[in-house]
């Protein structure tokens, strides 16, 4: 292929001591690679959980990136997804303004709305019930996952990644206050072992 040729040309064009170094280091071999890869979601975030947030069965996760941002979503044991029924709809039209209209912009996100831990993020509708998902931590709302409106079943299939609910930016003090009551991933697994 043409692309490969141009790639090789570039390497050959480099001074000899450089191309030699590159040839040895560019490709790892099978023995260098781990049986299981590090997962981006696991290695980039500290994972925390809350159980029964304001109501029984309302279990949520808070994934905190090391830059301080928090991804909020449904824990596997949340009553909306811990069954065989599918989620029918996700509605961000809760509170005074629809959460999808709460856009943050600019580097500082100075126009972002600050929500309380108990503020609603969205309503998850199942066959026979509706559940309110909440912020869990006080902070600026940076975005909600609008894909859930079109594809609510992401909550059933990929709640821990593409089915996240929202991204929040808490201040350090607010984070410290809220996280004191959060469970670590290990504590959560002990309390809510995965269903067989």
């Amino acid at each position: 292929m043409g692309e490969t040729d141009s790639l090789n040309e570039k390497e050959n064009g480099a001074p000899p001591h450089l191309s030699e170094l590159q040839a040895n280091t560019l490709y790892p071999s099978a023995s260098d690679l781990p049986p299981e890869p590090p997962r981006a979601v696991l290695s980039n975030y500290d994972r925390f959980f809350v159980i029964d947030f304001m109501k029984g069965g309302h279990d949520q996760y808070i994934y905190r990136h090391n830059n301080g941002l928090c991804v909020i979503g449904l824990a596997p044991s949340h009553i909306a997804v811990d069954n065989d029924a599918s989620v029918i709809a996700v509605d961000f039209n809760v509170g005074k303004r629809s959460r999808t209209e709460m856009k943050a912009s600019g580097k500082r996100k100075s126009d972002a709305c600050v929500l309380e831990p108990t503020s609603a993020l969205c309503k998850v509708v199942c066959n026979n019930a509706e559940y309110i998902i909440r912020c869990c931590v006080r902070g600026a709302l940076l975005e909600v996952n609008e894909r859930l409106v079109k594809d609510p079943t992401l909550l059933n299939t990929k709640a821990a990644s593409e089915g996240y609910i929202a991204i929040m930016m808490p201040r350090p003090a607010d984070w410290n206050k809220a996280s004191a009551s959060f469970l670590t991933a290990a504590e959560y697994l002990k309390r809510k072992p995965p269903r067989q």
Binding site: N67, G68, L69, K107, K109, I167
Partner: peptide, 9 residues
């Protein structure tokens, strides 16, 4: 997400 704290959304 990794740079969202310092760059515009």
């Amino acid at each position: 997400v990794r740079v969202l704290h310092r760059r515009s959304p």
